[in-house]
Amino acid sequence: MTPVAEMTPVTEVMPAAEWAPWAAWAPSTLSHHDRECCTTARAWFLAMNRSMWRGHGGPAWIAQRFPWGPSRWPLYWCDAMEAEEVDCGAHAALTIEAFQARGIHVVPVQLVQRQEPHHLLHFHGRWSADGASPDWAGEGAAYHEACATLLDGRVEVWDATVSSWLSPDQLRGVRSIAAVRIGGTIATGEVVTWRGLEISLGEWVSPAGVAGEG
């Protein structure tokens, strides 16, 4: 991949219709009943996090404990901790908690990733059958969430759903990055570096238009 100074706003390289459905979405957060049920669930999660993750790399235990699957939103702490599966929004929200508990500065990441068009019916069928919204899945693309550690102006993006660090050079094929926003909905103007690329926090950008493939 060719390093470039700055990523291009997604509107300049992608048809708005392809990603606009998700552009306005805010990063997922877990809800709290303000009762003992959620307090105990969160305490359990934080103690589990201490047990299962030593603070090196990413908290891979989360996706192992909660495999990827449909979640119904709003998702409360007590329900999330009892769930057999959770979606990428829950993965990301939990991972942010996990990093923060280790004293690591972390921000939300939203992505649009390419998908096989014929997978759409599977996504819709599975989510709908569980009473969850399938709106995250489009034809050939899907909305996804992750999070990024931030240190000295540099970010690394951890995708809790696949338990690995993402790279902006993932431009081709399934799960490649069509668009990304780091830092949530508020554009602060702060610029960070992601593996050689400069990105403004809070702005949707696309690595496709600026970084050569391969």
């Binding site: 105990t40 669930a41 305490a43 359990w44 103690a47 589990m48 009892e82």
Partner: peptide, 20 residues
């Protein structure tokens, strides 16, 4: 401890329900 869940002793906290 959850990382030693094969142990036969003690109360397991492998699920939030058991913890509660």
């Amino acid at each position: 401890p959850v990382t030693l869940d094969s142990s036969r002793f003690g109360t397991s906290f492998g699920s939030p329900k058991r913890f509660a």
